[in-house]
């Protein structure tokens, strides 16, 4: 196992940890907006680590270019998708927890 392999193994492990934390955050967080934060951040960071980890396996030919193109595309569209989803949820009238508590207070009083 050369130094490169160790580095790529570390990167793959790091990527896996990011993704796993995002997935756990998906269930543990209280409301939608915190969940979307967890999933989108770990999506991008997990993708960066795993794809770089894989890129180290290749000896820099067409495959590496394809990998980098995938990374570019994921970094371009991932956050945009999450942003659009959050905006549409906001537009759709979903409230954050503090807003729910205020509404509950106004409703009660």
């Amino acid at each position: 196992m050369s130094a490169l392999d160790y580095l790529s193994a570390a990167l793959l492990l790091l990527g896996f940890i990011f993704s796993l934390s995002g997935a756990i955050g998906l269930f543990r967080f209280p409301d939608f907006f915190t969940r979307i934060h967890a999933s989108s951040v770990t999506d991008s960071s997990g993708a960066v680590c795993i794809i770089l980890g894989l890129a180290l396996q290749t000896n820099f030919d067409l495959v590496t270019v394809k990998l980098l193109f995938i990374l570019f595309f994921l970094l371009l569209t991932g956050p945009t998708g999450s942003h659009a989803l959050a905006k549409s949820a906001r537009h759709g009238g979903l409230l954050t927890i503090p807003e729910c508590q205020e509404k509950a207070k106004d409703g009660v009083s």
């Binding site: 939608f32 999933s39 949820a89």
Partner: peptide, 8 residues
């Protein structure tokens, strides 16, 4: 929205 998030 959670479902869309899961799918994404």
């Amino acid at each position: 929205y959670d479902r869309i998030l899961g799918v994404n």
